[in-house]
Design a protein around this nucleic acid. Structure first.
Lengths: 137, 137
DNA sequence: CTAGGATTTGGACTCTGTCTAACTTCCGGA
DNA sequence: TCCGGAAGTTAGACAGAGTCCAAATCCTAG
C-alpha cells in the first residue's frame, strides 16, 4: 500500500475484521499515514487537532482493539507511556533516552537462534530488541 | 560475593560512592539477597515487612540513586511498572506476559554484531532483549 | 554541644490508563 | 417508515505508579 487515504484505511480495518467507524478510521489514518511510533496522547492530539471529535476512552479502546486484531504493535520502552507501531513486520527499535525518540532498526540481522531453549509449556509471543542510545556530550 | 549481609551491603554502597544509610542498606539488601527482579512497591513491601521504616519517597529516591550509580539496572517490560535488576552483567530477559514473572536468560549468545551502524553523535546506553512468552493452552 | 548539609518523610499532586453508566449510531425486520 | 437491539462512543470518576515539596530528622565536623 503506497498511499494512505481514509478509504483504504476502511479497507484495512475490514481486512482485520474491524468495523470501520469514523473514529477508528481517523485513528488508523493518524498511525499509518505518518509512519511513526505514537503514544496514546499523541494520537489523541492529532485526531482532535482542529475540533475535538474523539474522546480519550475511544482512543484507548481503539488502540487496544487494533492491538488485539494484530493491526499495530505495542512498544514498551518508556516507563511512563506505551508507544504504538503501525509496522508489525519483523524489526526492532532504537530508543533515544534523552529525547524520547523511537525509530526502527531495519535491515535487521541479529541471530536470535543463539537463544537457549525456552522452558516447557511456554510459547513465544514476541521478541523485542531495544537499543537504548543517548547523544554523546 | 557469595553471601549477603547488611555489612557487605554497606561496603557495596561505599564502593559505588553512595553514603550507606539505614534505609539504603535495607533496600540494597532486599534486592541483592534474593536475586530477583523487584518492582518499587515490592521493595517497599519487603523493607516494611515487620514494622514500617521507609517511606515511598525514599524507596523511589533510593532506587533512582542506585540506578544512577550503576548498582542496579532498570528493566522495562510491563507498561504499568518498572522492575529493578540487581544483576548488571550482560544478560537478557524472559517475560511471562500472563503471570508477570520476569527471569534471566543466562548463557546468552545472541549475535548483536549484526546490528547496522548507529547514527552519528549517539552512543549506546544499553541493549535490552526481551523475549515475551505465554503459557501454552 | 552546635550548626549545617545530607537524608528522610507524609502528603499533595500529576499522569497514564481503566471503568462505568448513559447516550448515540447503525442496521435489519415488520 | 418505524422500532428495537446491538455496537460504538462519551464524560467523568477512578486507580495506581511515580514525582514534588516543604518540614522534620539525622549525621558529623568543629
Amino acid at each position: 500500500m503506497l498511499h494512505y487515504s481514509h478509504d483504504n484505511m476502511a479497507e484495512l480495518l475490514r481486512a482485520h475484521d474491524i468495523n470501520p467507524t469514523h473514529q477508528r478510521i481517523e485513528i488508523a489514518y493518524a498511525l499509518f499515514s505518518r509512519q511513526e511510533h505514537l503514544s496514546a496522547d499523541q494520537v489523541m492530539a492529532i485526531v482532535n487537532d482542529r475540533h475535538a471529535e474523539t474522546s480519550k476512552a475511544t482512543v484507548y479502546n481503539t488502540l487496544n482493539l487494533f492491538l488485539e486484531k494484530g493491526l499495530i504493535r505495542e512498544v514498551i520502552v518508556d516507563p511512563s507511556k506505551v508507544f504504538y507501531d503501525p509496522n508489525t513486520g519483523p524489526h526492532h527499535h532504537l530508543y533515544e533516552v534523552d529525547s524520547g525518540r523511537l525509530t526502527d532498526i531495519d535491515a535487521f540481522d541479529v541471530r536470535i537462534e543463539g537463544l537457549p531453549a525456552l522452558p516447557k509449556g511456554v510459547e513465544t509471543v514476541g521478541i523485542d530488541l531495544i537499543v537504548r542510545v543517548k547523544r554523546t556530550a
